[in-house]
Nucleic acid binder design. Structure first.
Lengths: 152, 152
DNA sequence: TCTGATTTGTAGCCGTGGCTACAATTAAGC
DNA sequence: GCTTAATTGTAGCCACGGCTACAAATCAGA
């Protein structure tokens, strides 16, 4: 529902009322989930353009493990949100906002995988878990991860 | 959609086809998301019963930051899935399966928070992030976390 | 070129998890 | 005990993200 088109990976701190801060934690997790799909698509489209030269809906669908119809609907949402563009029967492209999001998501993904590996999680499990985890890692945690990995 | 009523926190390994394993990662993240709500409710109900002596829909709703109608609908889903019981206008209780789930979820939550803190994330940020992260941490990662924290 | 396979898009269905509004029941206070 | 407040439950709406089925457009090969 945000009217702003910034798509920060984080959200405002918001000084918390007495004991209802548990509710705020859940709300935050829910809103993170709401943008997770956009983030996944943005990163994937960026990857496909980088490696294949183009991002076709069918390839996106196959990579995500969903039907092409689902992918196309989600791409429509990306367009509504100003993250992607496409003309009929042509491939999908990212707007500057979409590119920025993709870059941040990719960096975050790597950081999460690296941290998991650093604490002893096997590489393949780290890749799997990171796919779900990354959307819930705040900027603050990311900074801590970077520092921990010696990339302060 | 699972017919089994076990609710493992993990899922089967499944030997991966050629390069479609990216799709499998996304599918795993999606299925984790599907059980996240159940997990949150189970843990919260267990907490409320422990600290307040009972779990009332209104309290559940307030703690989760949703309307009571939403909470009641979700509780209905817990009942359908065999995790909770309740009689009309009486409180909510967990079945043995629900209790087990709650216990595992609570342990996992603590482990995730502790790991985040151990790598340098501030306590409050760790609590917030853990709420979203925990649902995507595999048993394998949990074991790594425990070992890293010196609780092998 | 034109015919058939592939890709893309559309329509319409479903379950989930939000919500508000209203009804019913229980609990509390006079 | 009755009235009122609080709680609980129901109904019905919405957007999302899945899906299948079908239609339209593009692309490739004969």
């Amino acid at each position: 529902m945000p009217k702003s088109k910034t798509y920060k990976l984080d959200a405002e701190p918001a000084d918390l009322p007495p004991e209802a801060d548990q509710a705020h934690r859940f709300e935050k997790a829910r809103s993170a989930q709401a943008t997770a799909l956009l983030e996944d698509y943005a990163e994937l489209i960026s990857d496909l353009i980088g490696t294949e030269g183009e991002a076709r809906p069918t390839d996106i669908a196959r990579r995500l493990g969903v039907s092409h119809a689902t992918a196309i609907k989600s791409i429509a949402r990306l367009k509504r949100e100003g993250l992607a563009t496409s003309k009929l029967y042509r491939g999908v492209f990212l707007t500057p906002a979409g590119e920025m999001l993709a870059r941040r998501v990719r960096a975050r993904h790597r950081l999460v995988v690296d941290l998991l590996v650093a604490v002893g999680v096997p590489q393949d499990a780290a890749e799997v878990d990171a796919e779900g985890i990354e959307h819930h890692v705040s900027e603050e945690s990311l900074r801590a991860f970077a520092k921990f990995l010696g990339r302060a």
